[in-house]
Every structure is written in C-alpha cells, then in structure tokens.
Simulated scan of single mutants.
Amino acid sequence: MHTIWKGSISFGLVNFPIKLHAATENNDIKLRQLHKECHSPISYQKVCPICDKEVQSEDIVKAYEYTKNKFVVLDEEELEKLKKEQEDKAVEIIDFVKLEEIDPIYFERSYFMAPDANGGKAYALLRKALQESGKIGVAKIMIRSKEQLAVVRVYKEALLMEIIHFPDEVRHVQDVPNLPKEDTVVKKELDTALMLVDQLTTVFDPEKYTDEYRTALMELIEEKKTANAGISPTEKQPISPSNASDLMAALQASLDKTTKKKPTTRKKAAAKKNA
C-alpha cells in the first residue's frame, strides 16, 4: 500500500511512529473528453481573462478573496512555514469517546494506520485498550496542508483513522427547504411502512451490494473493444512545402479578391468629383 502520511501518534505519555494508507478507493470509470471531429483528447489551459493569455504555473500565486474582487496574497514561503509548524507536531489523541456518539454525517475518509519502525508494541497496546474499553480516540492531524479532525478506532486487526468534519463544515438541517411536519403522517400508513421495514430487515452484508451501472458500462466498453470500435486521434499533418505554397496562394487570392472589391480612396474621390 502507498504511504500517504508518515509521523507519530501519542496518547498520554505513549508515543509511537505510524504510517497512513488509504483504506478505500474510488472505482468510478473515468471517461475522457475528445474532439468529435478528430478524436483528440481535450486539454484545458489556465488563461488570464484580463491579459488574454495562457498563464504558466510559475506565474500563479495563491490568494484569499475576503470580499468581491478583493484579495490577500499569500506567499508560498508563508504557507510552507505554517504547514511545517503543524506537520512537525505529533498526532495527539486528546479525548476518548463512544463511536455511537458521532453521527455518520461527520465521517469523510478512512485510513489504515500501520506501525512504523519499533512502533509495533505501542500500536498493539493502543489497539487492545480501545477494544477493551469500547472507546475511540479523537485527535487532530495535518494532511495535505489542512488540519483535520480525526478519530482512531479498531477495524478487525488494524487501527483505523477516520477523518471527520469539523462542526462548522456540517450544514444546518434548518437550511434544508420544504421539510414536511411529522403530524402529516397517518397511523395506518405508518403501520404499513413499519411492516415493510420489518420484512426487509436483515444483517448487513456489504458483499451483496454492487455497482450495477459500473458493471454495465464496463460490459459496453468491452463489447466495443471486441467489435474493433476503438478509435485513435487523427495525427496532426505537418505543413509540407507544397502545402505551404498552396496556402500562400490561397491567402494571396483572398487578398486580391478583397482588394478588387474595395475601390481605393483616390478612385472614390474621383468618382464623386465626376458625379
């Protein structure tokens, strides 16, 4: 597994080195966008709308827009300094709570925690303590230039770090429009709904759920590949000397045609005088 973060974690006076590995992956099928005419992949450019030109990476700075079209520019050195100050801190478990006290809306992403060199014994100690207490640890960690709130829990034989949202990142339910009132529910309808829930109640087995759209899409792609329906971009044709001559001839002909259509200023004046 690829290591996405390396550091240490502590609870109380116990500190040990760890590595984080992504516990989940995105298996969405990625579709490219092609030019319909020649089937070349579409590229995207960073363009300045004022200067009307493409901007290179070295000419881009980061800034915070604190009001419409008003920015505070932040230097890379300043950002790196803040990032370094936070990354140098060990991840500290600051609280222990029960898992059921955290609503699932807070959970964002999961990472497997692996002990680094000489961290196995302390790793096993924390895992056992969490198992015996039935608690999870709450901690903070700096990942990819952002401070994250996290919980540490046991998942099978491993410790799992779950990145969770800060409270101000969860929107207020009061902002959801058109929520119906509870008193609109009819008892007979509720009894029927509860019977349906009871009939469909089972033990959760993740293996029974599959992405049917992704499966169907892959089948369609394989069918097209088998039928030799694959395409390649049209290669860009270099301008040969003969092509260049033809091009110049066409341009000159267009110029001559335009010139003939438009009388010169002197001819216009003469025409007016004779009139």
Rank of each mutant, 00 (worst) to 15 (best):
H2V: 10
I9K: 10
S10E: 09
F11C: 08
G12K: 04
V14C: 09
I18L: 11
N26Q: 05
N26L: 01
I29A: 11
H35Y: 15
V47S: 09
C48S: 05
D52L: 15
E54A: 15
V55R: 05
E58W: 03
D75C: 05
K83L: 03
K84M: 08
A90T: 04
A90K: 08
I93F: 06
F96D: 07
F96R: 11
Y106C: 02
F107H: 13
F107Q: 13
S110W: 02
Y111V: 01
F112W: 07
A114M: 14
A117Y: 10
A117L: 13
G119Y: 02
G119T: 03
G119I: 02
K121W: 00
A122E: 14
A122L: 05
L126F: 06
K128E: 14
K128C: 00
L130H: 03
G134F: 05
E147T: 12
V151Q: 03
R153I: 01
K156V: 10
E157L: 08
E157H: 04
E157W: 01
E162M: 05
F166C: 01
F166H: 08
D168L: 07
V170A: 01
Q174D: 14
Q174V: 08
N178C: 07
T184D: 06
M195K: 15
D198H: 07
T201D: 00
E207K: 15
K208T: 11
Y209Q: 05
E212T: 13
T215L: 12
T215F: 08
L217F: 08
K225H: 05
T226W: 00
A229V: 00
G230S: 10
I231L: 11
P233Q: 04
E235C: 00
N243P: 00
A244C: 00
A244Q: 07
S245Q: 12
M248G: 00
A249R: 09
A250R: 09
A253P: 01
T258C: 03
K260E: 13
K260Y: 04
T265S: 07
A269E: 09
